[in-house]
Simulated scan of single mutants.
Amino acid sequence: MSNSPSHPPEPSGGDRTPSPRTFDDLVAEAEAAPTAGWDFSWFEGRATEARPSWRYSEAMAERLAAAKASLDIQTGGGEVLASAATLPPLAVATEGWPANVAKATALLHPRGVAVVASPEDAPLPFADAAFDLVTSRHPVQARFAEIARVLRPGGTYFAQHVGPASVFELVEYFLGPQPAEVRNGRHPDLERAEAEAAGLEVADLRAERLRMEFFDIGAVVHFLRKVVWMVPDFSVEKYRPRLRELHERIQAEGPFVAHSSRHLFDLRKPARPF
């Protein structure tokens, strides 16, 4: 998943009436829509996703307001971090996808946040114990040993992760049934074990599956163009017959329903003994 955006989207809004527009019109519009960054206003009226009960952005903002030095890993276009009203005196963000690095820089630099280009699979380019708070919303890869290294003793990792088999109703519509090891990837129990092996303590771990609805084929195309790891070889031309079949299904039966998977991590690096 290298060079891919950091955050699968959470489209919102919309009614439940299938679009009367033609397949070709909807697909052409979706292909023309820009995919950089994580602005999901394009999905308004075309797709919905229920949000987790823990309200991550608000809870993250509360943590940031109390922190002295923070790091937001795989910040995407910086939109989630920028939503916080108060940022720490030292605030840094990393991002690995070049298009999002530029977008995040433009958005976050005016807020005093340093944006550092850093691939998801590379060590974090910071000194040991540099931050008292590390955050991330939908990281492509959570490298817990690196997170533990850059946290100060007593520091916190507060993040919302994508869980197992997220939106697999859509994935398997195009790719067919996936093997168990793929469906169970990103399982919170596996990630918990990785975090504890890195020396982090689990203060809280919650998981939810959430209903998603796609009201027209354009929303499906835009989603798969934007969230590139869902169907890695996706293109309209390659999947045109399946897309047309799905368009006809939505027109006849109503929204295509899928379910996202999310879990919340609240981890602590143990304080040094006195």
Rank of each mutant, 00 (worst) to 15 (best):
A159Q: 03
E62Y: 02
G218W: 03
V231D: 00
V115T: 07
A145Q: 15
V150Y: 00
L90M: 14
A195S: 08
V257N: 12
S166V: 01
H259I: 01
D128R: 10
F223T: 08
R51Q: 15
S57A: 15
T156F: 07
V221N: 13
G154A: 04
A127Y: 02
A99M: 11
L151K: 00
D189I: 00
L64W: 12
V162S: 15
E181P: 00
Q251R: 14
L267A: 02
R242M: 12
E44Q: 15
E49T: 13
F158N: 10
H109L: 08
E201H: 13
E196G: 05
P273M: 08
V221M: 11
E194D: 05
P270A: 09
K238W: 01
A197N: 14
S118R: 10
N100T: 10
L81I: 06
G154H: 06
A197P: 05
R209T: 13
R51G: 09
A142E: 03
L108P: 01
Q178Y: 08
L190G: 12
A117S: 14
N100L: 05
F214V: 02
G45L: 08
P255A: 10
F144N: 04
E169D: 13
Q141K: 15
G154I: 04
K226A: 10
E79V: 13
E201P: 03
G13M: 04
Q141N: 06
T105G: 10
P241M: 12
